[in-house]
Design a protein around this nucleic acid. Sequence first.
DNA 1: ATGAAAGCGCTAACAG
DNA 2: CTGTTAGCGCTTTCAT
Lengths: 330, 330
Amino acid sequence: MATIKDVAKAAGVSLSTASYAINGNRKISEATRAKVLEAAKQLNFQKNGWATDLKRSSTKTIALIVSDMSGPYYSELIRGVQEIAFENGYDLIACSSFGGNESTAIKFLKEKRVDGVIVSAHNLQDEPILESARKGFPIVVLDRHLKSDHIYNVLVDNEQGGYMATELLIKNGCKRIAYISNSSSSYDHKLRYKGYMQALNDYGYKSASNLNVNGKFTIDDGYRATKLLIAQRNLPDAIFYANDEMAVGGMQAFKESGIRVPEEISVIGFDDILLAEYMNPPLTTIRQPKYEVGSLAAHLILQLLDGKSIDHEYMLPTELVVRKSCLLRE
Amino acid sequence: MATIKDVAKAAGVSLSTASYAINGNRKISEATRAKVLEAAKQLNFQKNGWATDLKRSSTKTIALIVSDMSGPYYSELIRGVQEIAFENGYDLIACSSFGGNESTAIKFLKEKRVDGVIVSAHNLQDEPILESARKGFPIVVLDRHLKSDHIYNVLVDNEQGGYMATELLIKNGCKRIAYISNSSSSYDHKLRYKGYMQALNDYGYKSASNLNVNGKFTIDDGYRATKLLIAQRNLPDAIFYANDEMAVGGMQAFKESGIRVPEEISVIGFDDILLAEYMNPPLTTIRQPKYEVGSLAAHLILQLLDGKSIDHEYMLPTELVVRKSCLLRE
DNA sequence: ATGAAAGCGCTAACAG
DNA sequence: CTGTTAGCGCTTTCAT
């Protein structure tokens, strides 16, 4: 691949002249510029942006690390980050933490210099993140609580959400309310569970059943967990799933078994993914302000890059979205 | 931020020794290594991976460019690329072409050196892609036909898909079949349309109506286009939407207007996004082999990077997925 | 086993 | 207006 050196040689000018010409610096004469540009075209020259960044000591790009670039969950979040970054002349690149400590994510945290990083990946441990935080390299973490000088937290009030979900079920007249989650519960899921227990407690109920399956909060995991529950033949009258994807899987399982939602069992999810609205029946759920989380995170990074000093913790509320998957019993 | 230079100084060794120690080269004595590592820890040293890449002339990462990182469409595709890349020790980063010629995408094509690029973004013009193609920098394009020495195409047989969709409708007994798409039709959408017209022709039908809305193939655009069609009060008995998202919007419009799908009107989409299966009624559609496209693209990049010489064009078939949104009329 | 020095591709301060 | 030169942070050959 041709370098700027080759271009300079071909055009018969010095390195710097070539550089100036290519970057449109005005002190180069039209004639020379044309010569250089022509040579560049001939050689099919493309500049190596990382070399530029190296020189400039800034990449003008921020990285977003997600646990699964391909999941339905991240859509809105990404949009939030994207828009803010773009408006401010920053690039956004996303990479996944698929592969754990060997993952691209870790490399971006530790090696590939970007100006800032937003981390939303529960399958990443705390240490690599903590170790990566350093002055001049702002990190915003989204789904966990991490305290460190150079780490900032954007949190969603999962506990409140869990509480609201459970309370709705209770007020609807459900007596036996189960919670289905994942055994390797992440920070936010633990809080949802806490909210669930709190509500139960406040109203003098106790947990009907509390199923933790191994898995990754996917549709499939929800399906399997629910099948298990059905097989045990002692169905509660409502289930609070730790997230929408699991709820979707659950509803599928119920449909297959001829159990009607919400007539026979109420279902509530968490997140409000796109799918939720289109389910049959439409899924009642707790909405996370995903777009807001994303754009806030981007804003914070930008402010930090700007040398501003800001709070270390931000908490955003959740919102109950009532649709048709929960029955009002009398 | 501390550099390796600082570490070397702090440890009282030379630059090269520090580098060797940090990279685990065995010719460094245990004592020195320990000293260096200690200094690195003290200074919170993190190496700059781009500098390494610059030196090594390889980044071991491939970039995936998509038109909308946040859309529901790309999930499977990304997974396909991700898995293959990861298995082969490559990193994957995704960036969006949001912002057109100023976008991060263009920078990755032209400036930020990665080892290879996969492009799936209809909102990017041909030129920047063509201009970026050069020896030793493989580009695989997914949603368009682009001929150039260093560009490789992975295509899905959209025409066949369009044909199958239309044929199903015809065989189901629909007489008046409309096609709803986007005016700025991209390459693959044109082919879908061609398949549609071909089928109509083969069976001696003609197009009932052919609505092109301005927009971006989103749920919302489908909704608006359908509302328009409804307002015109001369509904066809089947609609072939250019993609699932538009079909979803269409079904929403029908529901609001009290028009029953499929009893009063049959609906078919294209892509088979996650949502399709969960619609009410479940959406009949044409499946694109998204995962396969992604993994094939990744494989190609890897082979090219390996110096192998391969075909320039690959065509994958589509598949009809019959669900409940099309009525069998007699 | 360790260090000096060249160089990856680029920019920019300085001199002319 | 153009060229010389130092240097961004790192690896690696070659000497010692």
